[in-house]
């Protein structure tokens, strides 16, 4: 009961925070950054389900992000189909690809799984680049239309901000639901010991495949939102380094934590903005921060910050206790 209450409070706080942000922030630049954080959060959420809960690493997740973006771009621009129908196709396409690829790939484990997904990501990226008659090739795909719903036109600024964070909220609720279900418990059992969970009757392969397809769907939704936000996509935005960035977001935020995904996405989106002023030294400082966070907060920022808070709390109450004693 108290668990449910806590989740309810968390969700309410989240909605209030989003509405407050949306109402108080007027500057399009800041709104745009928070919108990017939202898109990255979707990516991190999906990957976090796969990595944090099921314990399966994917180094090619940017492929699904790209599939979502390119599907909607091609359908809505080249064929003039409504973007909302394109969204359904994008998600369906990503899930289908995840099924075909996941079937053999998820039988691998550890670094081999990393290698398998990496290879998949590279192949998809090469397709984006080389199939230039359809995808526009390396120069990119121009002229993606804006999203429209009835009389609302979603453009950079408040309307898009609310759209993205609304989607993030729904995604968080769905993730929570999955985790609280039988499936969620089975997932965690895979993370802790695949053989043991197999022994108690969990069909681990199907389960891994399902969660892989789910995270692919989230990735493709993020790609859809990205494509209609920037209105231009190119293969560079979905390359290997983006996959690595996604893994970094999950790990640095804190694995197996929904809020960790938001934290990780925020850090990796905001850091480059803040570091702009360092110019040439940006890379050095970015690398250093990544290393330092991982060395001193191996469980990620969520756990690390809680630790620091609890520690300072404890030491404060501890010192109080000492004062009492001396009195």
């Amino acid at each position: 009961m108290s668990q449910q209450k806590r989740i309810f409070i968390e969700h309410t706080l989240f909605i209030i925070a989003v509405i407050l942000c949306g109402l108080l922030i007027e500057n399009t630049y800041y709104l745009q950054i928070i919108t990017f954080i939202g898109i990255n959060t979707l990516l991190a959420l999906g990957l976090n389900m796969l990595m944090g809960y099921a314990g399966q690493v994917s180094l090619g997740h940017a492929a699904f992000y790209g599939i979502g973006a390119y599907t909607t771009a091609i359908l809505s621009t080249t064929f003039g189909i409504s973007p909302w129908i394109a969204l359904v196709c994008a998600v369906g396409g990503a899930i289908f690809v995840a099924f075909i690829v996941g079937l053999p790939t998820l039988k691998l484990s550890g670094y081999y799984l990393g290698m398998g997904t990496l290879g998949f990501g590279m192949i998809v990226n090469i397709i984006f680049r080389e199939w230039s008659s359809v995808t526009g090739g390396s120069s990119g795909f121009v002229g993606i239309p804006m999203l429209e719903l009835g009389s609302i036109l979603f453009e950079a600024g408040k309307s898009y901000f609310f759209l993205v964070w609304g989607v993030v909220f729904v995604a968080i609720v769905i993730c929570r639901r999955i985790l609280a279900s039988r499936m969620g418990r089975a997932l965690r059992s895979i993370h802790d010991g695949e053989n043991a969970s197999m022994a108690v009757g969990v069909n681990t392969h199907i389960l891994k495949l399902q969660i892989f397809m789910f995270s692919a769907a989230l990735g493709s939704i993020a790609g859809f939102l990205y494509a209609h936000f920037v209105m231009f996509i190119s293969p560079d935005s979905f390359g290997f380094m983006v996959s690595v960035k996604m893994v970094t977001m999950v790990v640095i935020g804190g694995m197996a934590s929904v809020w960790g995904a938001i934290l990780g996405a925020s850090l990796l989106t905001l850091l480059p903005e803040v570091l702009h002023s360092f110019q040439e030294y940006e890379m050095i400082i970015f690398g250093l921060i990544l290393m330092i966070v991982m060395i001193f907060m191996p469980q990620g920022l969520t756990r690390g910050l809680i630790d620091i808070y609890e520690h300072s709390h404890k030491s404060r109450s501890g010192s109080k206790a000492n004062i009492k004693k001396t009195n």
């Binding site: 690595v244 694995m255 040439e280 940006e282 890379m283 050095i284 690398g287 290393m291 191996p298």
Partner: peptide, 28 residues
């Protein structure tokens, strides 16, 4: 060495950080 007891994925991210750092240093 400082992070030896961490999970392998954490160590991997540390090496990713190191690769960005080294590239930055080489660029300078």
């Amino acid at each position: 060495r400082t992070a030896k007891k961490h999970q392998p994925i954490t160590l991997v991210i540390i090496t990713v950080g190191a690769s960005i750092l080294l590239r930055g240093v080489a660029m300078i």
